[in-house]
Design a protein around this nucleic acid. Sequence first.
DNA 1: TGGAAAAAATGAGTCCACTCAACTTTCTCA
DNA 2: TGAGAAAGTTGAGTGGACTCATTTTTTCCA
Lengths: 223, 223
Amino acid sequence: MTTAQKRGKPTARAKEPRGKREKNKERTKERILEAALQLFRDKGLEQTTTKEISRKAGIAEGTLFNYFKTKEDLALYFFQKETEDLIRWFRADARLQKAPLTEKLFAIIHRQLEYIEPYEDFIGAVFYRSLQPSSTLSPLSLESQELRLKYLRFIREILAEAEEENEIPWVGDLGAYAVGLFYVGIVTHWLHDTSRGKQKTLALLDRALSLGTNVLKKGGWEW
Amino acid sequence: MTTAQKRGKPTARAKEPRGKREKNKERTKERILEAALQLFRDKGLEQTTTKEISRKAGIAEGTLFNYFKTKEDLALYFFQKETEDLIRWFRADARLQKAPLTEKLFAIIHRQLEYIEPYEDFIGAVFYRSLQPSSTLSPLSLESQELRLKYLRFIREILAEAEEENEIPWVGDLGAYAVGLFYVGIVTHWLHDTSRGKQKTLALLDRALSLGTNVLKKGGWEW
DNA sequence: TGGAAAAAATGAGTCCACTCAACTTTCTCA
DNA sequence: TGAGAAAGTTGAGTGGACTCATTTTTTCCA
């Protein structure tokens, strides 16, 4: 009888074992992120306290730490989201998928710069921490490690496509790694760039990418 | 009379206007650095408290902050010292000064890796912060900025010498910047490298430098 | 439907980096 | 030489990130 009843209601509501809880958690996490990002942007990372974030998100101070291990982890989540959005955006653009490598990389990095633009000050304080490799002690190591890997895998895929089309010679993982480093350099330049609309950085980006792909095509990569 | 007396004793002692004070300050700073470095190396950056450092250095907690604005600043001082030592070391080696560019850069970066070796864990936690550009809010921005500039100027000089000898085409400030970035990449690789004696990183360093200078010589740098 | 178990939220409490007003040492100059 | 000024030291105090024992909410199942 009981078993029959159990099986009788699945379509109505009982199908999802974790309904309210999961939904609430998601909403809370979203609220925390929203509050934090707004405060980080307006006041900077250091000037924003976890108390403030909690208050703005409508939760207790302790709750914040059930969702994010540290304040820094919370800040790094911004990049996590950016990377996920970036990959989705790129995969959705059919035209771009067929464009030459240089154009793809330009579009990708350019979009990243646009994304971080409103958060310039905050980025300066956190960006480099996402590079930090795992250290058994740092509580955020795994997260940032994962993030780096996700980004590198994405770039690796794009390079692999260009390799397959014989657009460039084989560059392997190291190629993706080099693009990642290049991105670090561009962001650093961007952070220092006081030209209108960061034009200098965009010019540098364009020229450096052309240079890079030219070297590759000419066989400069051979060891 | 008073003036005559004043001038009469310069050779004896009165010549140095700031004697005891300056000397004490220097000794204290040295003691703090020594204590801090030892603790950072043995227990890691996060696990070392400023209280501990002060105790080990034989000073009050507050005194530490008369010498270093923040704990992070204290940690960054390690790199300051490294850079200064590096420049002095390079300039003292007459043979190396005449060696080809690739060899110079290899020697420089290799020496830096050797220098940081005993501090591997600690480096992972601080290295990337030295990249952080100035932000009006960060109290340590100026110091780390200065450090970066000192290093970049040093690399720039070495590249300029190679330019003058027509060993490579003109690469300008951007060339130094690229070498700096390359160093970041190498250190990142080094931090992840689990091979015996970090041999993989050394191999990478060697090959990447050859590749780089080859590209330059073949005119790959032309835009 | 109710009552036990699991999951999540809470906020008082801890630890630690950093500040600052009071004190001590060193320097200066009549 | 000694008294006032300048530089340096001190440690109790402050604020903020993070913990954890307790309480509240949600789910599970007879």
